[in-house]
């Protein structure tokens, strides 16, 4: 007993003098660790973004030229006064919204199964879900071309069944299908986390109180995973708005391929109208930022 008292006194003496130093340490040192990432962010993201913002207010002085420092809003006026750009903007938003919605609907059962699964194949299932993301973009899109083209796998199969064939290549539907496939994993993962947080006994409570599967979904799963649904939807929407390779390859040169991102791409790379490309980019960015703000507001209203 005496020994115990003695040793505990020894311990309490030890840290006492060290305490003031230990107090200072965390606040003083840990901030330094963030410097490399903050520096990189400023040098390679914020600064170029500011330069681009500057470009968007300059005049188009011929291909690959940036007009003299002469701040105008011509580029923005051009965008919002030409019906063509309104159409592209509308198509982009519709495609992105449809892709995000379908992806969330497809992802929900997958995420639910993963979240509730106790199977030892769970890791394999996760890998399968991630697969589209780790497949090379070109390979993936050429794969879709093989499936979707007029004489492709899908139509051959439909013909074999005696059904009418579909035109999917170079159509908005085709773009939506291909985008949905690659973006669905994002919804799966944002839903997976929130569904795992939902106590499975809540589902049994609903059933025990007389509810059906529909009530489980409507009264427990959707309200309690609402944050994940919104986050997943927005994550996909943002990426669908920004997607350009898939619309370019599957949508082609026609209307189906003309979305905001491909427009920026053509302006920047083909027509070399850099100020207008910059302005279009910032319109895209503004839309996305507004949606993120809206999401925050919706989540707060829910609480």
């Amino acid at each position: 007993m005496a020994e115990l008292v003695h040793s505990s006194a020894g311990v309490s003496q030890g840290p006492a003098p060290a305490a003031p130093g230990a107090k200072k340490a965390p606040t003083a040192n840990y901030g330094i660790l963030l410097l490399p990432s903050i520096g990189t962010l400023i040098a390679f993201f914020i600064v170029p973004l500011m330069i681009m913002l500057g470009y968007s207010f300059r005049r188009f002085d011929g291909p690959a030229q940036v007009g003299p420092v002469h701040y105008v809003i011509d580029n923005y006026v051009k965008f919002f006064t030409d019906l063509f750009y309104w159409e592209v903007l509308g198509r982009t938003l519709v495609v992105a919204a449809v892709v995000a919605t379908i992806a969330v609907v497809i992802a929900y059962p997958i995420a639910y199964t993963l979240a509730r699964s106790k199977s030892r194949w769970k890791t394999l299932m996760v890998v399968i879900v991630v697969l589209p993301l780790i497949t090379n973009l070109v390979v993936r899109n050429y794969g879709w071309m093989v499936i979707l083209s007029d004489n492709g796998l899908l139509n051959t199969f439909l013909q074999y069944l005696g059904l009418p064939t579909l035109t999917l290549m170079f159509t908005t539907t085709g773009v939506i299908v291909a985008l949905t496939q690659v973006l669905t994993p994002f919804a799966v993962f944002s839903l997976f986390g929130v569904i795992q947080q939902i106590n499975p006994q809540l589902e049994e409570s609903v059933r025990g109180l007389g509810g059906t599967t529909w009530h489980v979904v409507k009264d427990v799963l959707i309200p309690l995973s609402w944050a994940g649904i919104l986050a997943g939807w927005l994550l996909i929407f943002v990426q669908a708005v920004a997607a350009f390779a898939t619309p370019l390859l599957i949508g082609g040169g026609g209307r189906a391929g003309q979305l905001l991102a491909t427009l920026v791409f053509t302006d920047a790379i083909s027509t070399l109208n850099w100020p207008f490309a910059a302005a279009t980019s910032f319109i895209m960015t503004a839309i996305v930022l507004m949606l993120i703000a809206l999401q925050g507001r919706m989540l707060r209203a829910k609480r």
Binding site: N199, Q201, E204, S205, G208, G210
Partner: peptide, 16 residues
């Protein structure tokens, strides 16, 4: 369960 007319109380309460 929804057709059994039972009331159940779980260990974890499981209130909504």
């Amino acid at each position: 369960p929804n057709k059994r007319e039972i009331g159940i109380v779980f260990q974890s309460y499981s209130l909504f």
